[in-house]
């Protein structure tokens, strides 16, 4: 995917307050073995609280457990 001026769309990671890591742009998401993890949407939210049932993605559970980001 190319962004402005024909360059690669650089990844941007937003650390959401007491929430997930919101990821935009080009980035490889893989398992520890290097197997690609399917990314079905352009912008994804990665679990930061550790309790998501769909890791590495966020499922909103951080709100239910009152997660506070360090």
């Amino acid at each position: 995917m190319t962004g402005m001026a024909g360059r690669v769309d650089p990844p941007q990671i937003v650390a959401c307050p007491n929430g997930p890591l919101l990821v935009r742009g080009d980035m490889d998401l893989t398992t520890p073995d290097g197997e690609p993890i399917e990314r079905t949407r352009k912008t994804v939210a990665l679990c930061r609280c550790g309790v998501s049932a769909i890791k590495p993605f966020c499922d909103g559970t951080h709100k239910a457990i009152g997660f506070k980001a360090p």
Partner: peptide, 14 residues
């Protein structure tokens, strides 16, 4: 929607 709206709520809120 479990996955999508966990993304959308962050974008929509801020």
């Amino acid at each position: 929607h479990v996955e999508a709206d966990a993304v959308h709520e962050q974008i929509a809120g801020r």
